[in-house]
């Protein structure tokens, strides 16, 4: 690891957060470590994640659902998808009921945040999370960990939205970086939005398409990571 490099800086943040994490699920997450930034992309275990939330304010809004889809060896795995439902403390806003189609019935098998979060951390441990506009997922997970464990959440995120503007810079319409728009450009099928697992799958497929179109040999994890 080169002193002062992106990986060195990330590793320091990761280690610092680990130090303040109390014993338990978050500590276990940090103990699993993180992938080296020089690892070839095909050898990186990734997990696409999409959070459905009650609003956009990290601190005020609640996570309603996490959709996860695992990826390894440059492929999306059909046997590694997961949905974790969170039960918000207060009542659902009407808007999120409509947008996420989450009803009280669906909440029946949802878990309170302090039970859902450990499950989610268990699946993220040691892996590279992938999200479209990853600031949202990173922000919500950090806020939740601070709430529940009093410590930050640090992970080497890949953001497909950022990757698109970095790898394929061009002038775009205001909504040109939206997931559905970008997918259509790669001839990927249209999906129903706002289901956690479907959105995670949509994001994972987009990443595969971006990597294929980038066409570079010997891509490493560092090339993909959020800057």
């Amino acid at each position: 690891m080169i002193f002062g490099s992106r990986e060195w800086r990330f590793a320091r943040r990761f280690a610092k957060a680990a130090q303040v994490a109390p014993a338990g699920p978050l500590r276990a997450y940090y103990e699993a470590g993180h992938a080296h930034f020089s690892t070839p992309v095909e050898a990186v275990e990734m997990i696409a994640i999409d959070l459905e939330t009650d609003g956009l304010d990290f601190a005020e809004s609640a996570i309603l659902e996490a959709g996860l889809v695992g990826m390894s060896a440059g492929r999306i795995r059909g046997d590694a998808a997961l949905r974790i439902r969170f039960r918000p403390a207060g009542a659902l806003s009407e808007r999120s009921v409509v947008v996420h189609r989450i009803t009280d019935d669906a909440l029946a098998d949802a878990l309170p945040e302090e039970e859902a979060l450990p499950l989610l951390l268990g699946h993220l441990a040691g892996k590279v999370p992938v999200a479209h506009f990853a600031d949202i997922e990173a922000g919500f997970l950090d806020a939740a960990c601070r709430r529940v464990y009093g410590a930050p959440f640090v992970a080497p995120f890949v953001c497909t939205m950022q990757l698109e503007s970095r790898w394929f810079p061009r002038t775009r319409a205001a909504d040109g970086l939206r997931l559905a728009k970008l997918r259509a450009g790669y001839r990927l099928p249209a999906y129903r939005a706002h289901d956690g697992v479907t959105d995670a799958l949509a994001c994972a497929e987009l990443l595969l398409a971006q990597i294929a179109h980038r066409g570079a040999r010997e891509l490493v994890l560092d090339d993909l990571l959020r800057r």
């Binding site: 059909g78 998808a81 098998d109 859902a116 697992v197």
Partner: peptide
């Protein structure tokens, strides 16, 4: 709530 992997609806 289960921790078992689920089918991806889009795939199935």
């Amino acid at each position: 709530m289960t921790e078992q992997p689920i089918e991806i609806d889009e795939v199935s």
